[in-house]
């Protein structure tokens, strides 16, 4: 298998505390891979280890089948990244920052720099120092810097942070375009799961510094289940009626006033009608399809919402 990123037993300890434990990550060439995980679960630390910003306590990172060490950092020429939040020399202008980046990578093409700035709609900000940029502008400039060399791998940590809805859509389209037209592999993290669902091919779920699972979005979709969610204060009566009238036994009690009915032999409308006729108060009834969000909650097993 042609992997762009591979890690084995990647572990990071800080002050004796293990924050990343035994990560075995596999990112294939040409795919868009999404990191899912709550805030503080270690996504950024893993990304920092993948880009040489911080060194692992144990385990190894392979980029393009080459082990990343201080001596082999030249492999990072093939990687563009924005980790944690976009960092710049704030007293310099956007174009000066881009040029500096190019010089560190041994690349200098003013046209490419202008094209990258154009792609993220920052072309008319040449004379403005970065300290006067909004967070959204810095985010876009960070992405421009990551893509300017059209690297083979781009790692973006929360790339839509600070962007307005139009900006989010633009970045999503840009990622898809770069992936399709240039075959660039992406590793993304985001806490907006709906956003990730629209872009990624495969996800890795991180919880408490551990990689729980790697799965393609297509596989998640195959496993998708539909259910009717019912909220009622008369739970016992509702359950009795569902079993006796409709022979429904495939359901799950989520809380003491909320159930999920997986047996869809009867429609939402029929169930509502039957319960109302038997004086069962219905606070809410709705048909759902399990999403990436549901998959994520199921994986982390906590049931809590993302921050």
């Amino acid at each position: 298998m042609d992997y762009v990123i591979q890690t084995s037993g990647l572990t990071k300890k800080l002050k004796g505390k293990t924050i990343i434990s035994d990560i075995n990550l596999h990112v294939k060439k040409g795919e868009i891979y999404g990191f899912l995980g709550r805030n503080g679960t270690g996504k950024t630390t893993i990304m920092k280890m993948l880009t040489g910003i911080t060194t692992p306590t144990s385990g190894e990172v392979l980029l393009f089948n080459q082990k990343l060490t201080e001596e082999t950092k030249t492999v990072l020429k093939r990687v563009g990244s924005v980790i944690e939040y976009p960092i710049f020399y704030e007293h310099l202008t956007a174009i000066e920052n881009m040029k500096l980046h190019g010089e560190y990578l041994g690349f200098y093409d003013e046209k490419e720099i202008n094209d990258a700035l154009d792609m993220v709609q920052l072309k008319d900000t040449e004379d403005k120092t970065v300290k006067d940029f909004s967070l959204g502008m810095k985010q876009r400039l960070g992405i421009a810097r990551a893509i300017v060399m059209k690297p083979e791998l781009i790692i973006l940590d929360e790339p839509t942070n600070g962007l307005d809805p139009i900006g989010i859509k633009d970045i999503r389209n840009l990622i898809l375009m770069l992936n399709r037209e240039y075959g660039i592999t992406f590793l993304l993290s985001s806490h907006i799961l709906g956003e990730m669902e629209q872009v990624v091919d495969r996800v890795g779920v991180i919880n408490n510094g551990k990689l729980l699972n790697e799965v393609t979005l297509a596989d998640i979709r195959k496993k998708r289940t539909e259910y009717i969610e019912l909220m009622t204060p008369n739970m016992e009566k509702a359950l009795y009626l569902l079993e006796s009238n409709f022979q429904i036994s495939n359901f799950k009690m989520v809380t003491n006033n909320r159930i999920r009915i997986y047996d869809l032999t009867h429609s939402q409308k029929t169930i509502s009608k039957m319960l109302i006729l038997h004086d069962v108060e219905i606070e809410e009834i709705q048909k759902h399809t399990s999403s990436l969000e549901d998959y994520f909650y199921e994986q982390v097993n906590g049931g809590g919402k993302l921050d």
Binding site: T54, K73, L76, K77, I87, F88, Y89, Y104
Partner: peptide
């Protein structure tokens, strides 16, 4: 302090 060192570390240059 400005965290630009992490930017420098992400370049293909060894720290030494």
């Amino acid at each position: 302090k400005n965290k630009t060192i992490s930017l420098a570390y992400s370049y293909p240059i060894n720290r030494k």
